[in-house]
């Protein structure tokens, strides 16, 4: 059985985000880029399934500019068997990504497609759901536990919902999107980094996959949240009440 995992290159989780002065987006030049944390979890889960002997191959997929290869190398160093890079300089929105993934699924024929529940840069939380819809596959989103039964060709997925846990049973093939508590991703060890160097990364263009990149969305502007004002010390209860009434206007 083959598992496909989608991984996204994003601004590192720990980097302080700066908005571009012209408000068209976020500054990404000279900024540390890393794998989206939820994608790391997705990849880790795929690797664990493979290591349990229930899958034979893990294919990591990334889309975007040339530098996505670095992210794929990280994925390969974690243990993915090979990589696919769909190279494009176009801005990619969830629907385009979902269409590209569908095209790749048709080529690679995996039984399970695992994605992070969302990317930390755009917070869209749409791609997994869209690709499941396009493929007409069942989906287990926000997975906090995944159990594969290869005999029965089904997946049992625990989902973190507001009221507690929901357990779903999905027939294969299926789409899973991962939540934070599913697992703790492994580190890239030196022997695996070494092995990763000889692993194959296949390149596609959107044209080769017959997907037209277009967007129905336009980003109007990106702005920073308002800066928090520093607090002031008040000298008396009366002054506090006065400020609450007349400045903050909350009482």
């Amino acid at each position: 059985m083959k598992i496909m995992v989608a991984i996204k290159r994003v601004v590192d989780y720990a980097v302080k985000i700066r908005v571009k002065p012209d408000k068209t987006g976020v500054e990404t030049t000279n900024v540390k880029m890393s794998m989206n944390p939820f994608c790391e979890i997705a990849l880790e889960e795929a690797l664990r399934i493979r290591e349990s002997g229930q899958a034979s191959e893990v294919v990591a997929v990334s889309m975007g500019p040339q530098q996505c290869v670095d992210t794929l190398r990280t994925g390969l160093a974690m243990g993915a068997d090979r990589g696919i890079h769909v190279e494009t300089k176009e801005m990619l929105y969830p629907l385009s990504v979902a269409k590209l993934l569908r095209a790749l699924v048709e080529v690679e024929k995996p039984q399970i497609l695992i994605l992070g529940k969302q990317a930390i840069d755009d917070d869209c939380n749409q791609t997994g759901q869209m690709v499941a819809g396009l493929l007409n596959w069942p989906q287990g989103t926000f997975a906090s536990k995944v159990v594969l039964d290869k005999e029965k060709q089904e997946l049992t997925v625990d989902r973190e919902v507001d009221g507690g846990l929901e357990t779903l049973c999905l027939d294969l093939p299926a789409v899973i999107t991962t939540d934070l508590r599913l697992n703790q991703p492994r580190y890239a060890t030196l022997p695996n980094i070494m092995k990763a160097k000889s692993k194959v990364i296949k390149k596609y263009t959107p044209e080769e996959l017959n997907v037209e990149i277009k967007s129905d969305l336009e980003i109007v502007q990106v702005t920073e949240p308002p800066k928090r004002k520093s607090g002031v010390m008040v000298s008396s209860v009366d002054e506090l009440i006065d400020k609450l009434k007349n400045e903050a206007r909350v009482i």
Binding site: Y13, V15, S34, M35, A77, T189, L190
Partner: peptide, 13 residues
């Protein structure tokens, strides 16, 4: 010289 090792892939690591 090194018997094993890991390389941080992101700032969190």
């Amino acid at each position: 010289l090194i018997s094993d090792g890991v390389l941080a892939q992101d700032i969190n690591q």
